[in-house]
Design a binder for these strands. Structure first.
Length: 397
RNA sequence: GGACAGGUGGGUGAGUGGUUAAAGCCAACAGACUGUAAAUCUGUCACUCCUUGCGAGUUACGAAGGUUCGAAUCCUUCCCUGUCCA
């Protein structure tokens, strides 16, 4: 196997990382690999907690792909065993443990999704139960003896919880050791992760030393802010854009982010260079944002889907026209004497989560029936097109 | 095992017997303004029923009981969390 010159590889890899520990080591390791023709083993671990990948995950996946582009060996590690613990990183409470079934289901979903970015031929998928399950109690004792309580409690997450009197269960302390042991088992050269993973990644270095291996290089990617522009993108915060979401939804969500946040997305979610992005800043922001949305939709769907989503956006959102794909619902709330009971109908058509909610929408003036704002509880018609907030439905009898 | 403190709505966090479906803030939703952006302003933010009224009813403050005309607030038991002692 032959590789591109080391300095070129290094240049390509450096872009988009928040930190590389240590860069000189990476250079040296690349040089070694070029000499022996053995590709680097690059690992990134994923907890099988989230069944759906979102754009935040793709920042890391994109870097994994860059290693693949250069001919290195990428290991996509599914932490099915560590998933039983739940990564305490950034958490202020103990995570509820997952069942084996949930984990298996989530792992399958992962596999189906990551290859939208990664090259399946160059990706090895592993589960850490392979080696963690085999550890005997004696092995665990030996593993735990390598690290001290004080060092683990030093971590921000834990020290904060400790100070605030929030419980920390013993098994949470093991998490970083389990993850570190993964690196030992796989003899990793490089491990990638988000900046919040720094501590866990560094434990891998120490354990590898204890096992007589050269410590892995640790490279962290910045955390992508969610659509709210403040918190990191996550499913539980409901500020995410899922990579399997329909083109139209994706496009719309991207258009909803702030202009300021858009530059961050350009930087972390596309392969554009910093110079190219700087040039974009001189143009009309909305136009540039639509271009970004098109880019991202094309990445996960197709160019045709992107064009269609853009067209739909212009018509339905900018001009407020009725969407092309309005769903239908049955009108079960029609009464011959009174007409249609609107709140009941809105709830029945899933335009409101409850009747009370529907009444609120009605009173807030959020309901349009056949193009006219409607605030009365009854409507004389039995068939019509309704818009409640941003949602549309055709109602038929 | 002992002593003490605490568990409130999606999140924070007030509330210690009665206009408390539970302040304030954040998030969320809707309306106005716009480039459906952001910012800002306004309103809403448990559920059900209807004759849509500042209507009626049901449920809610860790769980289960109890005291009381009335409990998130008092009592008992249990569960959970933390601090100190052993």
């Amino acid at each position: 196997m032959s590789f591109a010159p080391v300095h070129e590889q290094l240049e390509y890899l450096k872009k988009g990382f928040a930190e590389i520990i240590r860069e000189e080591d990476l250079k040296e390791r690349l040089t070694q690999s070029a000499g022996t023709g053995r590709p680097l083993h690059v690992k990134a671990g994923f907890d099988p907690t989230a069944p759906d990948l979102h754009l935040g995950h793709t920042v890391l996946l994109r870097k994994m792909k860059h290693f693949q582009d250069l001919g290195h060996h990428v290991i996509f590690l599914i932490g099915d065993m560590t998933g039983l613990i739940g990564d305490p990183t950034g958490r202020n409470i103990t995570r509820p443990p997952m069942t084996r079934d949930e984990i298996n289901r989530n792992a399958e979903t992962y596999k189906a999704q990551v290859f939208k970015i990664l090259d399946p031929a160059k990706t090895e998928i592993r589960f850490n139960s392979e080696w963690l399950e085999a550890l005997k109690f004696e092995d665990l004792i030996r593993l735990f003896s390598k690290y001290t309580v004080a060092r683990i409690l030093e971590r921000d997450d834990f020290s904060k919880r400790l100070k605030e009197g929030v419980s920390i269960s013993l098994h949470e302390l093991m998490y970083c050791l389990a993850q570190g042991y993964d690196s030992v088992a796989l003899k990793c050269d490089v491990e990638l992760g988000g900046t919040d993973q720094k501590f866990n990644l560094l434990v891998g270095r120490e354990l590898q030393r204890d096992w007589g291996q050269a410590p892995q290089i640790v490279a962290t990617t910045p955390l992508l802010e969610g659509t709210d522009g403040v918190e990191k993108m996550s499913k539980s915060k409901n500020n995410y854009i899922g990579i399997t979401e329909p083109p139209k939804v994706m496009f719309r969500k991207i258009m909803g982010i702030s202009d300021e946040l858009m530059w961050r997305y350009w930087e972390l979610l596309t392969d554009k260079t910093l110079a190219e992005i700087a040039a974009l800043k001189r143009r009309e922001p909305m136009e540039v944002k639509m271009e970004l949305a098109g880019h991202i939709v094309a990445d996960f769907h197709s160019a045709a889907d992107a064009a269609q989503a853009c067209e739909d956006f212009n018509r339905e959102v900018r001009q407020g026209a009725q969407p092309s794909d309005v769903g239908e619902a049955l009108n079960t709330a029609y009464d011959v004497a009174l007409g249609t009971n609107v709140p009941r109908m809105l709830h029945g058509a899933e335009l409101a989560s409850s009747r009370t909610e529907a009444e609120r929408l009605l009173k807030a003036g959020a309901v349009e029936i056949n193009g006219e704002r409607w605030t009365e509880p009854y409507h004389p018609a039995q068939t019509f097109t309704v818009k409640a907030g941003k949602k549309w439905k055709k109602i038929v009898i």
